[in-house]
Amino acid sequence: MEEIIKKEYETLVKYYEASGGNSGALLSTEYASMIINGDRVLAKNSTRGIKIITRRIKDGVSAQIVIKRGYKSKNPVHLCFGMLPREGRQVIRTKIIAEESSEAKFIAHCIFPNAVKIEHVMDSRVFVGKNAKVEYEETHYHGKTGGVRVLPKTRAIVAEGGEYNSSFVIKSGRAGFINIDYEVKLDERAKSMLVSKIYGKEDDEIIAKESIILNGPHSSGVVKTRMALKNNAKSKVIGKTIGIGEYSRGHVDCTEIIMDNAKAEASPVVMAVNPRAKVTHEAAIGSVDKKQLITLMTRGLTEEQAIDIIVQGLLK
């Protein structure tokens, strides 16, 4: 049994590194970290200020991560969620609690390199305490077949003066089916930025619904979406911000590049129920910018190379 776990661990770490993860940090005791394959925790490490508790649940793992009051983590928390088999279902339930005046950055990699028919359900609850800050960077690698259904859901509450920023990125491989459902509620002077950057190919389908509710006075939030779609890929983006608190500021910003037979739909929703709140939006869907394309071609790049540079820039 131990031999199997060791092998899974080594394989996952190899993919983790290949998808841009820092395997050195994953193996170091100075970093809080957690590696999960399917429903098994292969390794985890808590540190002085960050405590990780896990338990097995049906098809997955439930984890609670607490950043202690006043603790500002110099090192990011490294998380690796993966499934090595070709088929299966993984459910990850996380509860992140950043206590008052604490700070932590999470670098999460979700890796399904051999996926043919995999469902990954991520259900996250985030509580950011007064004047605390949490950054959550999530990079996915879904393999090359597109046989992945990813259902990430986050509900975050940010207390007075707190900050919660998250990013969801897929730049290489197939996206498969993705249904992002994020909602952040902000208290007084709290801030949030939700970013998703996804490259859809073949028959990938991406739904991104991200909302920031500006409850508190002087709270502010930005929902930013960047997508590039080619072949027959489809996307539906709903970025939403609601200004409730006095002098709250919200902005929804969506840019999508479509190529071939791809289809994109963007619906920025801005609502204000307070006359002193201000919410704005911008959305643009179109083909690759011709001027950018021509400029790069005048430097000797072929059309394909130029498109690649433009798309990678958009998703950076």
Partner: peptide, 23 residues
């Protein structure tokens, strides 16, 4: 095509240069 002319040594600086997000 443009890129083949560029590879032969011709290039052009635009009057209104493009913006490149992320680059």
């Amino acid at each position: 095509p443009i890129w083949e002319r560029a590879r032969r040594g011709i290039t052009l600086a635009f009057q209104e240069p493009a913006r490149f997000e992320g680059l």
